[in-house]
Simulated assay, not measured.
Amino acid sequence: MDKINLLVIVTTISLFISVFLAFFLLTVKTKQKTSNVLFALFLLLTAIDTSHPLFNLVADGPSNLGMLRNTLSFFQIPVFHLYVLSVCYTDFKLKPKYLLHLLPFLIANLLLLPRFYSVDTAAKINFIMNRKDMFELQFFHILIHLQIVIYFTAVFMLLRKAKKLYLENYAGTSINAYNWLFQFTSVLTALYLIVILKNVFKFSDYPYISEWIRIGILVLQPFIICWYLYKALNNPGLFRNIDSKLKLVSDLILEEKNNDQVTVDEKEYNQELLKLQQYMVEEKPFLNPSLTIQDVAKGIKVPVRDLSLLINHKLEQHFYDFVNAYRVESAMDILKDVTKSKVTVLEILYEVGFNSKSSFNTAFKKHTGNTPTSYRKGL
């Protein structure tokens, strides 16, 4: 089997999987419709970008449609960035300002207008044959490589902030979602770095290496996407977004300093802390697996801002860890109770407010140094 046939076969399989998954995401009933639409669009744009071998089978030579297909790659990473935004923030909405993401695509096509789009076929062939000397294509590749670096940096910064906001304001198990999305983004980043390597070889004296790297990318791509979707679709509650209006505690502290606000005195701080601890012990709000800092603030009648500073800054604990400590303590009481020796660890974790075995084990080991099972055996 020669290289061209292999490319066609691999591209056809990759294209079919991407289109099928995109169709599924667009038709499946879900609350996360915007996220699904954006990820489906990302899959379709990726499919178009990797369809080069199939496109060449039906194209007679360089064409405006073929070049337009190439420039659509400028949409891939911006769409993925918007997808991550929609996953992280529950109040995400598509806004006119997001049209700015079109700029790289528009700039690239405007540059190609004089010497490619508006000339005859012979001139187009000459343009492609001498691509190493064409500043438009060189600029095209520099721009898209720069775009990859900037957008993926922005995505990682977004995930870091979203995870921190979640830890400071929520006590569910959704932290796993940000870890998972971070892993997927890392894998996707590695894939795009390989794409950059492919493009470097494309304009070198070893273009055949570029073709073999392309085959490898085509093979890896559907596996990575299927891996991600399998995880996401089998855990419909995995991505439980946060409110983008929430502020990090570090920002709240900075605002206080800039505004010369009077900080809470020690006596008032102790009163609020006592009220909080009493509420946690008597009312046991931590038994609610979806507990938020807003729920606790309402329960003890303290402003959310003050409570956030109290827990996340004064106690130097994330709200997530603060609540989980109470859950673990409650689980420890059950594990110590000889009358409940037949109650399984799985039943216990649900009873004390966890809804994930992995998050329960992680929190329990962090708090006690042991797993729940080994702790029970050691009693």
Rank of each mutant, 00 (worst) to 15 (best):
F322M: 14
L110P: 08
H141M: 08
T46N: 06
L273N: 14
N355Q: 15
S244Q: 13
V79S: 00
L72K: 07
P289G: 13
L273C: 12
Y228R: 09
Q32T: 05
L310D: 03
V119M: 12
F55H: 09
M280H: 00
Q32G: 02
L218I: 02
L220V: 06
Q221F: 06
V187W: 10
I13P: 11
M332L: 08
I175M: 04
F156N: 03
D91G: 04
W227R: 14
I48T: 10
T11V: 06
L287K: 09
Q221D: 06
P289E: 12
I225L: 04
R240E: 14
V58W: 10
L100R: 08
E329K: 10
D2C: 06
V8R: 01
L246V: 07
A162V: 02
N199T: 14
K314R: 13
N199F: 13
L287G: 06
L41W: 08
V28E: 13
E136I: 06
K164F: 03
I334Q: 15
M332N: 02
F20M: 11
K97T: 15
F20I: 11
Q147F: 03
T371P: 02
V264C: 03
T121Q: 10
S63C: 10
T11L: 00
N179P: 01
V10D: 00
K164D: 02
S35K: 12
M134V: 11
E256C: 01
V10K: 01
V79M: 13
G216E: 07
T339M: 15
V352E: 04
F24L: 12
I144G: 01
F80T: 02
N241L: 09
Y208A: 07
S51D: 11
I253M: 14
T71M: 11
V352N: 07
L85E: 15
A363Q: 06
T292E: 11
K245M: 05
L113T: 08
L335A: 10
P62C: 07
M280I: 02
I253D: 05
V338A: 15
L43T: 03
V262F: 10
L43P: 00
W212P: 01
T185Y: 07
I17R: 04
F20D: 02
K245V: 04
N169H: 08
V200Y: 06
Y206R: 11
A177G: 15
V328T: 07
K31P: 06
K366P: 08
L137Y: 04
L197H: 07
K298Y: 12
L45P: 02
S244K: 09
K31Y: 04
I213L: 10
S359M: 10
P114G: 02
I196Q: 04
D295G: 03
I348S: 01
F139Y: 06
R160L: 10
P62M: 11
K275M: 04
S186R: 10
Y83P: 01
L72Y: 12
L94N: 05
Y228I: 03
R69D: 08
I300F: 03
N199Y: 06
V338T: 14
